[in-house]
């Protein structure tokens, strides 16, 4: 930043309009339409995940109760099926709605898992330093040395794991390292700050320092990263399911739907494009939300 802007800003700060970081971030976000688009999308997706029955009927997704008829196989989008039918004659739109829950759950559980494990270990390693830090940091660089989807491919193809929890377990095990690095760095930074030193000088216990003084500083960036990675994990689940290693039928997710639709893609593209559309929009919504919040929190990027 040039002195010029610093001068202009300090002149501004001296005025009546000075704001806190959080208030300023919120001020930025409120005016950012991308933020609102992502919020609306995520509210919509959450509604679909929580109450799929509001958007579609479950009957249309199964042949057990006669909802899917083979005579409707690969029926094109039209009056009967808004977005077409798949090979089994099931309504692609309804299936996509009912698949949202698995896809989003896997992403959400993995994001929570990696954030909890990574943050906790990062906090301990950064706070206590020394041997435990060296060991944990070494282990981290090993996990970062294995591309996480490839690692998940190895694990899921060699070990028999229950499908939804297996995918969550595999992805969490192989990708907590990013959250670890972030929180560890933030912890080390906060540990050297005057307020932490002051708290220590006043005789605060380790736990209190960690949770009252250090964690609040690390929590913002970790949540932003968790939101972005939520989108990325939803995509990873789809890739694994597409390869046949993720969610197994009869359970269904967008990845499973895409995998099953691929052979019919050239004749009936809607069977693939509809779940792919849901998937892309969902991933995009989380990445956009994470990035707009992260930009708003970073004063360096202010215009």
């Amino acid at each position: 930043m040039s002195d010029l802007q610093v001068e202009a800003q300090s002149a501004q700060a001296a005025g009546p309009e000075s704001r806190t970081v959080a208030a300023d971030a919120w001020y930025q976000l409120r005016r950012n339409w991308v933020f609102w688009v992502s919020v609306v999308l995520i509210v919509g997706i959450s509604a679909i995940v929580l109450f799929p029955g509001l958007f579609a009927s479950e009957e249309a997704t199964t042949s057990l109760t006669g909802g899917c008829q083979l005579e409707d196989s690969l029926e094109a989008p039209g009056d009967k099926f808004l977005l077409g039918a798949d090979q089994q004659g099931c309504d692609v739109y309804s299936l996509s709605i009912y698949s949202a829950r698995t896809s989003v759950s896997v992403g959400l559980l993995t994001a929570i898992g990696t954030t909890l494990i990574g943050s906790l270990l990062g906090l301990l390693a950064g706070f206590y330093g020394g041997k435990s830090d060296s060991v944990l940091s070494g282990v981290t660089s090993i996990f970062l040395g294995l591309p996480f989807v490839l690692g998940a491919v190895v694990l899921l193809s060699s070990v028999d794991l229950p499908d939804i929890w297996g995918v969550v377990f595999a992805l969490t095990l192989l990708s907590w390292a990013t959250a670890f690095r972030l929180v560890r760095a933030k912890t080390i930074e906060a540990k050297g700050q005057d307020y932490t030193l002051a708290a220590r000088a006043l005789g605060a216990k380790d736990l209190r320092i960690m949770f009252r003084h250090i964690l609040p500083n690390a929590i913002g960036p970790s949540i932003v990263v968790a939101v972005i990675s939520l989108g990325i994990f939803i995509g990873a689940e789809a890739t694994l399911s597409y390869l046949g290693l993720g969610i197994q039928p009869p359970n269904t997710s967008w990845g499973v739907m895409i995998s099953e639709a691929q052979n019919a893609f050239f004749t009936a593209p809607w069977v693939l494009m509809v779940p792919a559309g849901f998937l892309t929009v969902t991933v995009l919504a989380f990445i956009l939300l994470g990035e707009t919040v992260s930009d708003a929190l970073d004063p360096k990027l202010r215009k």
């Binding site: 040039s2 010029l4 001068e7 202009a8 300090s10 002149a11 001296a14």
Partner: peptide, 22 residues
């Protein structure tokens, strides 16, 4: 004092102000 416009004056003389905003 800082904010009195000293540096801005210098940059204006050099012709290196960021325009816009300046």
């Amino acid at each position: 004092e800082s904010g009195s416009g000293k540096s801005v004056t210098a940059q204006a003389i050099m012709g290196i102000l960021d325009t816009p905003p300046a």
